[in-house]
Nucleic acid binder design. Sequence first.
DNA 1: TCCTATTGTTCGAGACTAATGAACAATAGG
DNA 2: CCTATTGTTCATTAGTCTCGAACAATAGGA
Lengths: 113, 113
Amino acid sequence: MRPLYHPPLSEITVEGILYALSDPVRVRIFAEIARSDCPQICSNFLQLGERKIPKSTLSVHFKILREAGLIRSERRGVEMHNISRCREINEKFGGLLNAILYAYNAQRGDPQA
Amino acid sequence: MRPLYHPPLSEITVEGILYALSDPVRVRIFAEIARSDCPQICSNFLQLGERKIPKSTLSVHFKILREAGLIRSERRGVEMHNISRCREINEKFGGLLNAILYAYNAQRGDPQA
DNA sequence: TCCTATTGTTCGAGACTAATGAACAATAGG
DNA sequence: CCTATTGTTCATTAGTCTCGAACAATAGGA
C-alpha cells in the first residue's frame, strides 16, 4: 500500500475545505474526529445513526477529507488512525473550522432554530 | 417567467451553504454581492478576471446560490437584482458567513499565507 | 511458513450531476 | 409591433459519485 498523501498547509484551500464538509456524511465524520481526543479508525463510521455506509464509500469519504487537508491518517497495524488537522488549519484560516463546526452542531442539536 | 424560489430561513442548511460556496466561481460571486452595498446584476459576472463564464452556466450558479439561501434575486425590469441574505443567515448560523468570507479573502489576498 | 481474520483501498459499472450552446421568455423603448 | 437586452430552460456531453467485488496489507496463531 503506497503511503497516503497529505497536502502541505500551503495547498489547503477554502474551497477544498467547504467541498469536503458539504457532504452530510463527511461533515459528521469530521465533527466526530475533531471533537475526539483519541484517533478514530475508519470502521467506527460504518454505521452512522440509522444509516449504513458501505466500506468502499467510506474509504472515498476519508480520502476526500484527507486530500482537503482536514485529517491526517496513519496506519497502525491493520487499522488507520485518523486525527484532525484543526490546529494547523487554524494557523492559516483562523476561525473557519470553529465556525463551521459550531454551525453544524447548532443545526444538529436544534433543527427548529 | 415563474417567480424565483427563495428558501425560508428554516430550510437553509450548513451543508447547502458549504456546497454552494465550494465552487471558486460561486464563492467569488457571493463575496462580491456580500461586500457590495447595491444590488448586483447577473451579467456583471460574465467576465470574472481572465475567465469568461457562459451566461447559461452563470444562471445555474445564481440558482444554486439562491436555493442555498445565500442570495435573494428580484427582477427589476429586464435585469435581476441580487442581494445577499447575510443578515438573516447570521441569525441562524452566527459567524459562519463571516468566517468563510474572511478566510476566502485571506486566501485571495495572500496566496502565500 | 502458511492459513485465516480484519481493515481498508482499488476497480468497474451504473446512476447521478455539472457545463454549455441554442432556443426561448420577459421586459423596455422606440 | 419590432428590436435589443437580460436571464432561464432544454438537450447533449462530460464528468463525478456510489457501491459490490476483488485486492492488498497486516496480525496472530497453528
